[in-house]
Design a protein around this nucleic acid. Structure first.
Lengths: 217, 217
DNA sequence: GCCGTACCGTACCGTACGTTACGGCAGTGG
DNA sequence: CCACTGCCGTAACGTACGGTACGGTACGGC
């Protein structure tokens, strides 16, 4: 028995993690056209092992998505010396991180297969991606928003509404266009610019100061 | 020879339109698991005819997406007696229409298959949906935005930036959550509410009056 | 009446791929 | 040395489905 990662139920050996990384790479290259044979060949393992470890193709895909999700861990926000500057910086950093993840090839590939599978009977992948995508983003951001409200820097009634507005201002049409195959290059510079713009717009809508920076320029 | 619709290259007989409607229904039910045999059976036509008319499976899917796109025609905006009230009404009506289309089962199904196909070699469906989705929305909305700017009601430099902000405020996380299979019921009442909120937020960001309605409450 | 055209229904073919089975090999405990 | 286990590599099986072929029917033109 080798070392296993402590993901509760999902105890993965190092070998299995390597296999899942190979599956991830193939998912990026070939999308849902990924075959069990191709995974076995890429990972230099036998198909027998694939079926023993993951049950069937869906099990492999599910494990792959969960494995990727387990790699992206949230960086918590520290509420020390909280003021408008740190709130702004937090929002901006958050938007930047999110746009970077969103536009990455792995995120695009995983969202594509999850969206595809959500159409058939197997909703598992969709639920997992939903849980580790928008919902995880909400769970991470809401404490910051509530801290902003508690300190009087932000005004809103429903935290969820404020979050979803921020989501819209940050993501806009970027994700759907990427998923549909639009060539949309996001450079670090443009992501920085968009994060700043989204943050300023959000503060203009929900900030306590009406003299907040004009959004959109 | 039956009557043909005047779509330039794509001359479709009534029979073929019926077939495409059947394919559309199956696409909603089964998603990409749709088979040529199922389409033939549902439309009471022979597979031979399917291949004669549409070439192959991809051709059938492409024709189906285009057929749906041809059914959704834009309602132009009339720039008579243009003022803040009509601008607001136009934006709000636009947001409402868009949310209704977006949350419809057909739109969800088509976006799902297009996203799935964008991952493989066949980018056609993605391009078509992109063209008839976000891009068409932009083409329809931009004249209204520019009219607003010309009349001094709106302030922005890049029309595209203004459009994308409006897109984000309207769509938010709704589309990606629907595509991923989230049960998200949009009632007429909630759509009306969201359209109003998005419009007010947009005017708060880009409107000439700083005393515009506070967004988000 | 006869032919050509268009189409339906169905049977058929080829292949790709998920899944299973088997032979061989390395490492480990006794 | 020998059994056992875990795994690789590959071959084999079954099936679903894209694509094709063919017989049968209706209809319009001559």
């Amino acid at each position: 028995m080798q070392l296993a990662v402590d993901v509760g139920e999902n105890a993965l050996t190092e070998r299995q993690k390597d296999v899942l990384d190979a599956a991830l790479a193939l998912l990026v290259e070939a999308g849902d056209a990924l075959t069990m044979t191709s995974v076995a060949r890429r990972a230099s393992c036998s198909k027998e092992s694939l079926y023993k470890w993951f049950g069937d193709r869906d099990g492999l895909l599910t494990a792959t998505v969960q494995w990727q999700a387990s790699k992206v861990r949230a960086v918590p926000v520290n509420p020390e010396a909280f003021n408008l500057a740190s709130l702004t910086a937090g929002l901006q950093r958050f938007a930047s991180d999110w746009l970077h993840v969103l536009s990455g090839t792995i995120s695009v590939a995983l969202n594509r297969v999850a969206v595809g599978h959500a159409g058939s009977d197997k909703h598992d992948l969709g639920v997992i991606v939903l849980e580790n995508g928008p919902f995880a983003m909400a769970r991470r951001l809401k404490p910051l928003l509530q801290l902003g409200r508690d300190t009087g820097l932000l005004h809103f009634n429903e935290t969820d509404e404020a979050f979803r507005t921020f989501f819209g201002l940050v993501v806009r049409d970027v994700q759907i266009r990427l998923l549909l195959g639009d060539r949309l290059e996001l450079t670090d510079a443009s992501i920085d610019r968009d994060s700043l713009r989204a943050t300023q717009q959000f503060l203009a809508l929900y900030g306590a100061q009406t003299e907040a920076a004009e959004g959109g320029h």
